[in-house]
Simulated scan of single mutants.
Amino acid sequence: MALINTIREKSGVAVGAVAIGMLLFIVGGDLVGGRNRLFGRNDQAVGEVNGEKIELPEFTAALEQAKQNFTNQQNRPPDDQALAYLREQTWNQLLARRAYQPEFDALGLKTSDDELVDLVQGDNISPSLKQAFTDPKTGQFDKARLIEYLKNLDKLPAESQAAFRNFEASLRDFDRPLLKYTSLLKNSVYVTSAEAKRFDEAQNAKASFRYLFVPYTSLSDSSVKPTDAQLQDYLDRHKGRYKVEDGRTIEYIV
């Protein structure tokens, strides 16, 4: 009978545990997921630069595009090592855009249509395109193959077309303005002839000299006997080294 009573008492706890478990199973995604609908939260920020958030969907979309570009270039999907590199590269690119874009806007740094054409098929081809269309046998950039690729771009799969359009957008909106920005900083630094001369002298000036080193440890303490006046003079000139905090002396009986 005692056993039956114990089972009855514990059964309430068991039923309660099962009920809680079912509740967590049903709403668990809302409690721990990025979209907490149960409490009205919808925060998917994974980072923030200068007060501007980087949302998870933006990072995911950028990573998927990077994976697609890798697949198109290498004719294979990225392995674990390449995927880790793409994640880090994508994240750094998002951070860089958030950090530099306000500076681009403030300085009015943009890429004109003529500049973009020049970077894609003109006389100043983007280094990325040069690398992609370099003949592996000769090591030389094949501009004719690039032009042929552009002529047939509309015949390529939709994924390849989208990847190239995204590349053009990145070239126009970030890569080219970044090059202008870094060039502006580089050319804004001016070194006078006097500074250059002083730097050259500091780097190349030489001197020959002889010296005698006598370590103080070679002298016995008894050979040097400073007077009280000398000690007081030294203390007065170096008070900061011997400054102590105020203290108190307490006597008590337990």
Rank of each mutant, 00 (worst) to 15 (best):
residue 2 A to P: 09
residue 4 I to M: 10
residue 9 E to Q: 13
residue 16 G to Q: 03
residue 18 V to T: 03
residue 19 A to V: 15
residue 19 A to W: 10
residue 22 M to T: 11
residue 27 V to Q: 08
residue 28 G to E: 02
residue 31 L to P: 03
residue 32 V to H: 08
residue 32 V to R: 11
residue 33 G to A: 05
residue 38 L to F: 07
residue 39 F to D: 01
residue 40 G to K: 03
residue 41 R to K: 14
residue 42 N to C: 03
residue 45 A to M: 06
residue 46 V to K: 03
residue 54 I to S: 00
residue 61 A to M: 08
residue 64 E to R: 15
residue 66 A to I: 04
residue 69 N to Q: 15
residue 85 Y to M: 08
residue 93 Q to N: 14
residue 93 Q to C: 00
residue 94 L to H: 01
residue 95 L to E: 05
residue 96 A to L: 15
residue 97 R to D: 15
residue 97 R to C: 01
residue 99 A to Q: 11
residue 101 Q to F: 11
residue 108 G to L: 08
residue 108 G to N: 07
residue 109 L to P: 06
residue 111 T to V: 03
residue 112 S to F: 08
residue 112 S to D: 06
residue 114 D to T: 10
residue 115 E to L: 02
residue 128 S to T: 12
residue 130 K to M: 14
residue 132 A to R: 13
residue 136 P to K: 07
residue 137 K to A: 14
residue 140 Q to M: 07
residue 142 D to V: 05
residue 143 K to I: 00
residue 152 N to D: 12
residue 155 K to S: 10
residue 157 P to V: 04
residue 158 A to D: 14
residue 171 L to K: 04
residue 174 F to W: 11
residue 177 P to M: 06
residue 177 P to L: 05
residue 179 L to S: 13
residue 179 L to G: 11
residue 183 S to Y: 06
residue 188 S to V: 08
residue 192 T to V: 04
residue 197 K to Q: 15
residue 199 F to I: 11
residue 200 D to V: 09
residue 208 S to P: 00
residue 208 S to F: 07
residue 211 Y to F: 13
residue 212 L to G: 05
residue 213 F to L: 13
residue 220 S to Y: 01
residue 221 D to P: 02
residue 221 D to S: 11
residue 224 V to P: 00
residue 228 D to H: 04
residue 230 Q to P: 00
residue 232 Q to K: 15
residue 234 Y to F: 08
residue 238 H to G: 01
residue 238 H to S: 05
residue 241 R to P: 00
residue 243 K to I: 08
residue 248 R to C: 07
residue 249 T to M: 13
residue 250 I to L: 14
residue 250 I to E: 06
residue 253 I to H: 12
residue 254 V to M: 07
